[in-house]
């Protein structure tokens, strides 16, 4: 048997879902006999059959990916409850096996997958999607690239009508329906407190909190998931603040981004300039914008002043 063929057959077997009792299936979902697959490629020994030897790898695969996935999404687990989360995780990992050399990227397709499979989250689908978006943004913020930050002097003589600001690659801007930022912090606190409180108490508390949030009427919250001094933070944003940052991320020039964000705003016209100034001051202090690229667009913007 050729190397590639053998590896395809074994990988397919190893990634075949386990039974409910976490053993290797005797018949794969596509009708293959797993005993036959095992005995065709793997030798038995005096203690284990071919099937049992293959099963060691089959179980290790699922234990590894499920535990890595659960570690990355404790918030989604709290929203769905343990049993539903486990079923969802298995279904997700069957549809979206790892395509990366690092387990860090295991959940990269969870948000879009959950949106396509609403039944996996039941009545709490919107809440689960919001939480998945937040937890994935958290992963991205944790180890995303930080470029040199924009300095005030970089902006000297630049025409705002042409200026295109780029936010740091580690920042995610999220428009959410539920206050999942508070909920996730509570879930994490519960996990941290496990040493001092019983597991049962924490599970009850978590269920109660999730239930309370799920009962809230959906109302938009705007969030920037960012990093400061290597810690990840969730920062609530005003609607207009979020709109400006989103427009800038989409590549709009500064003036156009501000103009479109403030169109229809409830902020009094007289107060808008002060708001914009305050927001930019905060964003600059947090280092959210990257230094200007020496792109023809920005060069031209500067030279016309």
């Amino acid at each position: 048997m050729k190397l590639l063929n053998l590896q395809r057959r074994m990988a397919r077997a190893v990634m075949t879902p386990l039974t409910h009792s976490e053993r290797m299936r005797t018949v794969a979902p596509d009708g293959r006999s797993m005993r036959a697959v095992a005995s065709q490629i793997i030798k038995p020994n005096d203690r284990l059959t071919s099937f049992e030897r293959l099963e060691i790898y089959n179980r290790q695969y699922w234990f590894r990916v499920l535990s890595a996935f659960a570690e990355d999404f404790p918030g989604v687990r709290a929203v769905l409850g343990g049993r539903r989360f486990d079923a969802m995780a298995k279904a997700y990992l069957i549809d979206c096996p790892s395509q990366s050399f690092t387990l860090r990227n295991l959940g990269s397709r969870l948000v879009s997958w959950l949106q396509k499979h609403p039944s996996r989250a039941g009545e709490r689908q919107n809440l689960a999607v919001d939480m998945a978006r937040l937890e994935w943004a958290d992963i991205e913020a944790f180890d995303g690239l930080r470029e040199p930050s924009l300095k005030p002097e970089d902006l000297a003589g630049v025409n705002p009508a042409k200026l295109r600001l780029r936010s740091q690659p580690y920042i995610s801007l999220l428009a959410l329906r539920y206050p999942v930022d508070d909920l996730l912090l509570e879930v994490r606190k519960d996990s941290d407190d496990l040493d001092v409180a019983s597991n049962a108490f924490n599970e009850r508390h978590k269920r109660k909190r999730v239930g309370a949030v799920a009962k809230l009427n959906p109302s938009a919250i705007f969030l920037a998931v960012h990093r400061l001094d290597e810690d990840v933070y969730f920062r609530r944003l005003d609607r207009e603040e979020f709109a400006i940052l989103s427009a800038l991320q989409a590549g709009k020039p500064l003036s156009a981004a501000i103009e479109s964000a403030l169109r229809g705003s409830l902020i009094a016209v007289a107060d808008r300039a002060a708001h914009v100034e305050k927001w930019f001051h905060t964003w600059a202090a947090l280092g959210w914008f990257c230094r200007l690229e020496k792109s023809p667009k920005n060069e031209k913007a500067a030279s016309r002043q």
């Binding site: 590896q7 395809r8 990988a11 290790q60 695969y61 790892s98 395509q99 050399f101």
Partner: peptide, 11 residues
């Protein structure tokens, strides 16, 4: 890994 899918195991 095979065909771009990773098992994250040392097979």
């Amino acid at each position: 890994s095979v065909d771009g899918r990773y098992t994250h195991d040392l097979l």
